[in-house]
Design a protein around this nucleic acid. Structure first.
Lengths: 200, 200
DNA sequence: CCTATTTTAGATCATATGATCTAAAATCAA
DNA sequence: TTGATTTTAGATCATATGATCTAAAATAGG
């Protein structure tokens, strides 16, 4: 019925994610995006809308291909405690393995894009809450099975893991030292009576 | 010997901090800065250099008037445990008290400005380490006096407090809910055997 | 008073930016 | 084949941006 698209949506969104992730929203120009995506500005505008809309799509693409799958994968681990520890371990390895120190696009977005964009903030919060909820589910489940000792309120324990993870992701950008990131995660786990992370 | 400056350096840097803090580095234009600071672009350039240099000066101004004094004030508290709890309490109240959700300029800078600016990164790291060191000193001192129970390695305990604080500052921007911020801090303190924060 | 020195004010430069327009190209249903 | 429809390609618009230039203004020492 009409001319077919020449570009691969996954590939061009991967490229957009890479630019936004490396440089942030404001510091990435539309022309740079066009070059990375190997599309013209008109094609991008036609397919995704303006820059803000493309950012939103890129973030969704990033999260669809990363966060949700990671949570599901770790939650399928043999034990809830292992799920938490495995998730933290993977977050640290991703942070340290990225020589560009890009951190986590979700966390970066929370700090850069938020201020005057309530829609984006709601979306970011929904995604962030996914992580918090994952931690809470694991804590509750592990306590019910006796694997995780009782102690601090389960909501607060999840909040602690959550805020530590965000902090680790901040440090991944500015001070990506293994001892620092692992130390924070190690302390969070030990303080909640959880087993240590698996080796890297 | 020469024409005297008409502007008050503290006042104009306060104004610059306000803009950078609210909008970030990239999203703040030099003209907007000039208007907020009530100076011409030429005067700003003459007094502070280019935009990047002004940002650096603004950040220094912010930290000189905020971070160092806060650490010193809390470290003068009657006990090291109270110093930690008081610092967290104050960080949370500052976060919740700011209707603009600006978070902490130091943390915001760590995420936005870092990537390709090693000088800035080193500076940010030095300032961030100030906080980590503060936590570590308090832990060590409190354990020596018996006020803080032994347990996790002191370095790791400091890293946990540090990363949680950074996470709280991230959440302050995107999800400034008292229950969330306090819950994370409460759990961090309790898990290290520290007394709870003072009431707000 | 006068001169050296620094700060101001306003204009301006060269470029970058986000967004859009026009027209050609490519497909598929009829 | 034809015509409707969508995507491309390239140019372009209006504006915003960081930075700088020129000249006037304001002070203190001589």
């Amino acid at each position: 019925m009409a001319r077919p698209r020449k570009f691969d949506e996954t590939a061009v969104l991967d490229a957009a994610v890479d630019r936004f992730w490396s440089q942030g929203y404001e510091a990435t120009s539309t022309r740079e995006l066009a070059e990375s995506m190997q599309m013209t500005l008109a094609s991008i505008h036609n397919a995704f809308g303006d820059k803000r809309a493309l950012y939103r799509r890129s973030l969704e693409h990033y999260l669809d291909g990363s966060l949700r799958a990671r949570i599901a994968r770790h939650e399928a681990a043999p034990s809830p405690a292992a799920a938490i520890a495995g998730f933290l371990r993977e977050s640290i390895e991703r942070s340290l393995g990225d020589g560009c120190r890009r951190g986590c696009l979700l966390v970066n977005s929370a700090l850069e894009v938020t201020p005057a964009d309530p829609d984006m903030r709601d979306y970011l919060n929904a995604e962030l809450t996914t992580i918090e909820d994952f931690f809470r589910r694991c804590i509750v489940k592990g306590r019910r099975s006796g694997e995780i000792p009782d102690g601090i309120d389960a909501d607060d324990a999840a909040r602690l893991l959550f805020s530590s993870l965000l902090g680790i992701r901040v440090l991944a950008r500015v001070r990506p030292e293994r001892s620092l990131l692992e130390g924070a995660a190690r302390a969070a786990l030990a303080s909640l009576g959880l087993p240590p992370m698996p080796d890297s």
